[in-house]
C-alpha cells in the first residue's frame, strides 16, 4: 500500500511535464542510438575496408608502422600478381578456375538432384517424411573434419584423391540437404491445386510438374543455387585434405597456401582475398531476400 501511494503522489505533477520531456529524451536517445549503430557498423566493416585498402597499397605501405590509413601509394600490382605469374598464368588464377568448375558443377548436380526430391517431399505422402527430412538435414551438420577421414580412405581406394570429380561429389553431397530443405519451402508456397487442375486437363503428374510448377519455382531455384554456389565456393576443409596438386586445388586452400612460407606477401593475400570474396558478396546481394532461409540451411523461413 505504502509503495503504491508513494508512486501515485509524484505522478500527478510529473504527468504534465512528461510529453516534452519524453520527446526530448526520445530525440537524445535516438541520437545516441544512431551514434552507437555507426560505431558498430564501423567496427564490423573496418576489417573489410582494411583488406581492400591493403590490396591496393604498395608493399612499403603495407608494412608501414604506424599503419597508413589514407596517405599511401595506390597500385594494382597485387591484383596483377593474382592472375599473372612470371611467364604465364599464376597458380592462383588456375585455382580460381578450378573453383569455378567445382562450385559450378556441384551446384548444378545438387540442384538437379535436390529440386525433384524437394517437390516429391512437398507433394506426396512419403513414408516417415519428417524423419527422412530430419535425417537429410543432419547429414549436413556432420563435422567436416570427421567426415573427411573415411572419405579420404574411400577416395584413396577408388582413385578420387586429388581429382576435381572427388571434390564435386562431396560438395554435391553437402549441398543436396540444403537444396532439398530450401526448395521444399518454395514448393510448399506453390499451391498443389495448379497441378491437380493440370491433371484434370489430361496432363500426367510429371507433365504438370514440368510445365506448370517448375516455371513458378525458377526464382526459388535460382536463389537456392546461388547459396549452394557460395557454400561450395567458400569450402575449405574438404578442399585442403582431398586435393594437393596445383591444377586441381581450389581457391581457398590456394589462398591459405600463400602464408605458408617464411615471408608473407600480405598485399597479394589481400588482393587474392578481394578477388575471391567479391563474387560472393555480389551473389549474396542478389539473394538478400532469401538470406535467412539460406544461412539457416532452409530451416527458418519468414
Amino acid at each position: 500500500m505504502a509503495v503504491s501511494v508513494d508512486e501515485a503522489v509524484p505522478t500527478g505533477p510529473v504527468r504534465d511535464h512528461t510529453p516534452p520531456a519524453r520527446r526530448f529524451g526520445g530525440r537524445g536517445r535516438s541520437v545516441l542510438e544512431i551514434a552507437l549503430l555507426t560505431v558498430l557498423a564501423v567496427v564490423m566493416l573496418f576489417p573489410v575496408l582494411w583488406m581492400i585498402e591493403t590490396s591496393i597499397k604498395e608493399n612499403r605501405d603495407v608494412y608501414a608502422i604506424p599503419a597508413k590509413f589514407f596517405d599511401f601509394t595506390v597500385t594494382l600490382d597485387h591484383f596483377k600478381d593474382v592472375f599473372i605469374a612470371s611467364g604465364g598464368r599464376s597458380a592462383l588464377s588456375v585455382s580460381f578456375l578450378n573453383s569455378v568448375v567445382v562450385a559450378g558443377v556441384s551446384t548444378v548436380l545438387a540442384t538437379v538432384l535436390g529440386v525433384p526430391a524437394a517437390w516429391a517431399y512437398s507433394r506426396f505422402a512419403v513414408k516417415a517424411k519428417k524423419d527422412q527430412l530430419f535425417f537429410i538435414l543432419s547429414t549436413r551438420f556432420m563435422p567436416p573434419v570427421v567426415v573427411v577421414i573415411p572419405i579420404f580412405l574411400m577416395y584413396r581406394q577408388v582413385g578420387l584423391i586429388d581429382t576435381k570429380l572427388g571434390l564435386i561429389l562431396i560438395y554435391t553431397a553437402f549441398n543436396v540437404p540444403f537444396t532439398i530443405w530450401m526448395m521444399k519451402g518454395f514448393v510448399d508456397e506453390v499451391p498443389a491445386e495448379y497441378e491437380d487442375a493440370a491433371m484434370l486437363d489430361g496432363y500426367t503428374r510429371l507433365q504438370a510438374f514440368w510445365r506448370f510448377t517448375l516455371p513458378l519455382l525458377v526464382p526459388g531455384i535460382a536463389a537456392t543455387a546461388v547459396f549452394a554456389l557460395i557454400f561450395s565456393w567458400n569450402e575449405f576443409v574438404f578442399a585442403i585434405f582431398l586435393t594437393s596438386s596445383d591444377d586441381v586445388r581450389t581457391a581457398p586452400p590456394a589462398i591459405a597456401g600463400l602464408i605458408g612460407g617464411t615471408t608473407v606477401d600480405w598485399g597479394l593475400v589481400a588482393a587474392a582475398s578481394v578477388v575471391f570474396a567479391l563474387p560472393v558478396l555480389a551473389f549474396a546481394y542478389l539473394v538478400r531476400k532469401h538470406l535467412i532461409a539460406g544461412v539457416t540451411l532452409g530451416a527458418v523461413r519468414r
Binding site: 583488406m51 557460395i230 581457398p252 602464408i259 589481400a270 570474396a277 560472393v280 558478396l281
Partner: peptide, 13 residues
C-alpha cells in the same frame, strides 16, 4: 558482409 565471407579469407585477414 562479414557473414558471407569465406572463413579462409576471414582467418587470413
Amino acid at each position: 558482409v562479414p557473414m558471407m565471407l569465406s572463413q579462409v579469407v576471414v582467418g587470413l585477414f
